[in-house]
């Protein structure tokens, strides 16, 4: 889609195509399961029977090239931060990041004395949705995912954006 992005003036056809693309991308977000620590358990619980992530269309993929959303769940140490960046760069556009839990948002309980902890994963990758909690309940993670869906649907990839 790189050829067509930001090319067309805003009109009815382009707006409907934008909506179609937004619908397709937001209702099948395949997530890259990046469970690092305790929040990974909550992510697994969200993908299990009681709260089901497949309801929203999210299927776990283990290869970054086939995933749309990277859910960074857990404490990111500085040793891991370089790898997070590398895997983020290997994902295919359009890609989104959800920062799950307080460790990924801002360093969590290790914010003050943790010399080895990355104070928030947004220091290495651009984050779209932050889900606070330690760990966030499955309902909270699902709310974060629905907010991400709204964000994807409000993107207008084809329309030329005037300054």
């Amino acid at each position: 889609m790189g050829v067509f992005e930001n090319k067309f003036q805003d009109n009815v056809v382009v707006a409907s195509l934008d909506k179609l693309m937004g619908w397709a991308r937001s209702t099948s977000p395949w997530f890259f399961q990046f469970g690092l620590a305790c929040c990974a358990i909550e992510m697994m619980a969200t993908a299990a029977s009681r709260h089901d992530l497949m309801r929203i269309g999210m299927i776990p993929r283990s290869s970054p090239r086939q995933a749309d959303v990277m859910i960074v769940a857990g404490t990111v140490t500085l040793k891991m931060a370089l790898r997070v960046k590398k895997l983020y760069e290997q994902m295919a556009n359009p890609k989104y990041v959800i920062s799950m839990g307080s460790c990924a948002t801002s360093g969590g309980p290790y914010w003050q004395h943790g010399y080895h902890v990355l104070k928030g994963v947004d220091l290495v990758v651009p984050v779209d949705v932050y889900v606070p909690g330690c760990p966030p309940r499955p309902e909270a993670l699902i709310e974060g995912l629905l907010k991400l869906q709204e964000k994807i649907q409000s993107e207008r990839p084809l329309t030329r954006k005037t300054a």
């Binding site: 619908w23 937001s26 209702t27 089901d52 497949m54 309801r55 269309g57 869906q149 709204e150 649907q153």
Partner: peptide, 10 residues
Amino acid sequence: KVGPMGQGVG
């Protein structure tokens, strides 16, 4: 589980 359920808009 339930499977894809038509969550979301539209």
